[in-house]
Write a protein that binds this DNA or RNA. Structure first.
Length: 463
RNA sequence: GGCCGGAUGGCAGAGUGGCUAUGCAACGGACUGCAAAUCCGUCCACAGCGGUUCGAUUCCGCUUCCGGCCUCCA
């Protein structure tokens, strides 16, 4: 079954046919590195990581190029650095590192390439010069602006007419603009602001040109998929599209525009002033496993709005627990992943990345494993465990051993726990149940849950 | 105001023109000394009003409610 993807440009699900199956190319707008990644940023990263994983599975690991940029030139960065009293490059390096750590914890693979804006200013200048030479842009008062009037298709992606844009304009129009819709390609820098020498004086690039230049540098003028959050459709992607296609003589820029839905927290838009700003780092520091966060983010279809709540996180935690319990049935020494992910899981993902349905199939496998285990069907159990593990991997989940997940990586107190379990076994044998229950309660107080097996042994896990 | 997307059982969340989604919670049962985990069973919904149809939660229209975007927020 071919991959079906919803294309924001046509507003339809379409069959995904790569331009070159030997090199499937995807560009996703990455973070502006001035602060920690919040859970909404994490959603976008996880969604496109999931698409990347599906493409790698389909076309081969060496046949997908995933570019996700690092925006390290931006006025928010300048402001944050000033507020922190920190040099700009120190701030961007630090927040980039934190971003990498947090996303890795969520099971997101590193992209093939992660270009930084600061390393692509010459390409941006060259593209701007090209746009000026072809009458799509003009210089004015140290700025260079894109002339939206020169591009009749402007507004096609975001479905807005020029008139609608004017009607809704809530920002005062700069006097040097020929058309109120014109947007900045280059702007002048004051001596205390970062800047690069250019034909228009010392300055810095506008936001939109950064992505146009970096995608061209690494993926060429025409590539398969361009991703980002729904909120980027206008103006960012609309502007990018106009810049790139007009710079390339009208050649098609992107085949598939893919956008993920927004995330709210307790039904409210996240904002620092409301205090409902949730960062990935904060959750991880509260010992929420990264794959629990990932599963919570994948439990809603990527294009639908996702409301982040404590209940959702708890449900995800329970789901991951259930999966590892199932994988641990019969204590398999190793699970053979060679049969690959089950067809139903793959098909769900191929249908516009239906991750909630894919997860449903994993729940069904977990159930089937437990049932086989109770019925003594070891072959059926192993087969389903292999399917669950492989399906989980395709979703960037269940990569750890059940032992590690259920008992924790640090087993320093394992010997002590075992001795307490032995003491309890002795008490139970002698029918001193009050003593046995006391030991169990003591262990529970330290976060250890005991589970008695039918064969008389007792297993433990962390709560 | 303009454009766009939603409304599914207690909660989360898929899907379908006629056939049990799934998970969590709840309740009953099995297992257990008691638990935990698990299994079996119960609970069977599709915002409202019209229309199309033999038949609509699924298609069309209207209404109500919710959300997003409207120049640099994923």
């Amino acid at each position: 079954m071919p991959i079906q993807l919803y294309n924001s440009l046509t507003r339809r699900k379409e069959e995904f046919v790569p331009i070159d199956p030997q090199n499937v190319r995807m560009y996703v707008c990455g973070p502006t590195v001035y602060d920690l990644a919040h859970i909404g940023n994490a959603r976008a990263v996880v969604v496109f990581d999931q698409l990347y994983r599906l493409l790698r599975h389909t076309y081969g690991e060496g046949h997908v190029t995933y570019v996700r940029n690092i925006t390290d030139i931006d006025d928010k960065i300048i402001d944050a650095a000033r507020a922190n009293g920190e040099p700009i490059d120190a701030l961007t390096r630090r927040t980039t590192d934190l971003f990498h750590q947090d996303m890795a914890a969520l099971g997101a693979l590193p992209p093939s390439l992660e270009p930084r804006c600061t390393a692509h200013v010459p390409q941006m200048i060259a593209m701007i010069e090209q746009l000026i030479a072809t009458q799509h842009a003009y210089a004015a008062e140290g700025h260079v602006l894109f002339a939206v009037g020169s591009w009749p298709r402007y507004g096609r992606l975001s479905r807005r007419s020029r008139q609608e844009l004017l009607a809704g304009a809530r920002v005062e129009v700069a006097p040097y603009k020929r058309d109120p819709g014109d947007f900045v390609l280059w702007k002048p820098s004051t001596p205390d602001q970062p800047g690069w020498d250019s034909p228009w004086g010392r300055g810095r690039p506008g936001w939109h040109i950064e992505c146009s230049a970096m995608s061209e540098a690494h993926l060429g003028p025409h590539f398969d998929i361009h991703g980002g959050g729904l909120d980027l459709i206008f103006p960012h992607h609309e502007n990018e599209l106009a810049q790139s296609e007009s710079a390339h003589g009208g050649e098609k820029f992107v085949n598939f525009w893919v956008h993920n839905g927004f995330l709210s927290v307790d039904q409210t838009k996240m904002s620092k002033s409301l205090g409902n700003f949730v960062t990935a780092r904060e959750l991880l520091q509260h010992d929420v496993p990264g794959e629990v966060i990932r599963l919570a983010l994948l439990s809603t279809h990527y294009r639908d709005p996702l409301d982040w709540t404590e209940a959702k996180l708890e449900q995800a935690e329970q789901a991951v627990f259930r999966f590892y319990v199932a994988l641990n049935r019969g204590k398999p020494l190793a699970i053979d992943l060679s049969p690959g992910p089950p067809a139903v899981v793959l098909e769900a993902l191929q249908d516009d990345l239906n991750t909630p349905l894919a997860l449903t199939h994993l729940y069904e496998l977990a159930h089937s494993i437990n049932r086989s285990h109770e019925q003594g069907d070891a072959a059926g159990r192993s087969r389903d465990q292999a399917a669950l593990a492989a399906g989980g991997r395709l979703l960037g989940l269940l990569g750890r051993t059940p032992e590690e997940y259920l008992k924790g990586a640090q087993a320093s107190d394992a010997a002590l726990i075992d001795s307490r379990i032995a003491a309890r076994a002795q008490a139970r044998k002698e029918h001193r149940f009050a003593d046995a229950d006391k030991i169990r309660a003591e262990l529970l107080a330290t976060g250890i849950v005991l589970e008695d097996r039918p064969d008389g042994t007792t297993d433990w896990r962390r709560a």
